[in-house]
Amino acid sequence: MEIRWLEDFITLAKTRHFSRAADTQNVTQPTFSRRIKLLEEAMGTTLINRQTLPLSLTPAGEEFLLLCEQVTDRVRLTRERIHQISEDQARRIVMAAPQSLLSYLLPSWLERHGLQQRVEPYLRATGWLLNDYFQALDRDECDLALCYWPRGRCPLDIDLAGYEYLRVGQEVLVPICAADADGLPRHALPGNRRQPLPYIAYHPRGLLHAVLDAHLAHSAQQAHLITLNENVQTANIKELVIQGYGLGWLPLRAARRALDSGDLVRAGDTRWDVPLELRLYRRRQHRHPGLDELWQQLQET
């Protein structure tokens, strides 16, 4: 039994005439009559009294009409709801961001700009490396990419010709470590050549690793470090540092609460800090219908 058969029956019940009902349903009368006959066969009873003029419904037909109206109305409402869901989903803008920005910046940033209902954080992106974000933009897996970006000299092997960006904030990487019994840093910079400091590092192909390497290479004082672990996510580095395995650099937003509570202390003064920009990237030749409007809104704020 098809939904259109039920719609046919409702139309016939309203018009009380096969030809007019067939015209309303945009089918020939023989086709329409055949559908009604199939419907009666499916229900196992006569639904139309064809001996009256205009025709009438049998008692079974009257009962069946109520069911047809209920079912078709439910289907209509469901179709409308599905269409609305599809439209809402199509309007939502997918933003990829690393775990630390997703946790410590994005919620307040979206709220400040009133974008909670328009922008959807892409949770699969939290462990990506920098190139992954631009590849995802290229294949329309996400619409926006929120990234850390170096403020100093740091060569990056990325062709940015097909993208544009907005500066949406600033951040700073700070060296941190666990405290000793006296509340002093357990692994204080710069260390020395004989006893290099245990270092919990970022992934060697990640942006933050490149930024730190460039900063340390141009630092007036050499840091003596030995890498114990390399990790993509800031949260993992933070946990290893809190447990005392070594020092690491964290975005200040991610470290602030642990620094305030004393779970972490600075491993060096501000000369070891690494300034960063926060950039929001999009592809110039994007396909999202609502992205230009949002981009303009952010440019004006």
Rank of each mutant, 00 (worst) to 15 (best):
N229S: 15
H187Q: 10
S219G: 11
P204E: 12
L212W: 01
L208V: 12
L160N: 00
H224I: 07
N231P: 02
H187A: 05
A235M: 05
H203A: 12
Q233C: 13
V174A: 02
D143R: 02
Y165G: 00
L156D: 06
L156I: 15
Q222M: 04
G206M: 06
C177L: 03
T234R: 05
P150G: 08
Y199I: 02
Y199P: 08
P198Y: 08
R186F: 06
A178Q: 07
P204F: 09
V172T: 15
Q195M: 12
V168M: 05
Q195C: 09
V172D: 02
P198G: 06
W149K: 08
P175K: 05
W149R: 00
Y199T: 02
H209W: 09
G162S: 15
Y163A: 05
S219I: 05
Q233V: 10
A145L: 04
A214F: 05
G169V: 08
D213A: 14
E141W: 09
E164K: 00
H209P: 07
A223G: 04
K238E: 11
Q233D: 13
L173A: 05
P175R: 04
Q222W: 02
D143F: 04
L173V: 06
L144N: 01
L144A: 08
E141I: 01
A217T: 03
Y148E: 10
P204K: 10
Q195T: 14
I176D: 07
N236D: 14
D143M: 03
A235W: 04
Y148W: 15
D143N: 14
C177E: 02
P196S: 09
A178W: 04
C142R: 08
C147M: 14
R151S: 13
A161C: 13
L197A: 08
G162V: 08
R139F: 12
Y148L: 01
V211P: 02
A223Q: 04
Q221M: 11
L212Q: 11
L144P: 03
E230C: 15
Q221F: 00
I200D: 02
P155N: 14
I200V: 15
C142V: 15
Q170V: 12
P196L: 09
V168N: 10
I226R: 12
H203F: 10
Y202K: 07
I200Y: 06
V232S: 10
P150R: 06
C147T: 12
A181Q: 14
A210H: 09
I237D: 00
V211D: 00
N192P: 00
H215M: 03
R193K: 15
L160C: 06
R194T: 13
L166D: 10
P155F: 13
A179T: 01
L173G: 01
H209M: 03
I237Q: 03
A217H: 09
N192Y: 01
L146T: 10
V211F: 04
D180R: 00
L146I: 11
R205K: 15
Q170I: 08
V232E: 11
Y199L: 08
D159F: 09
Q233K: 14
Q221E: 15
A214V: 05
P150S: 12
R193Y: 12
P198K: 05
I158M: 15
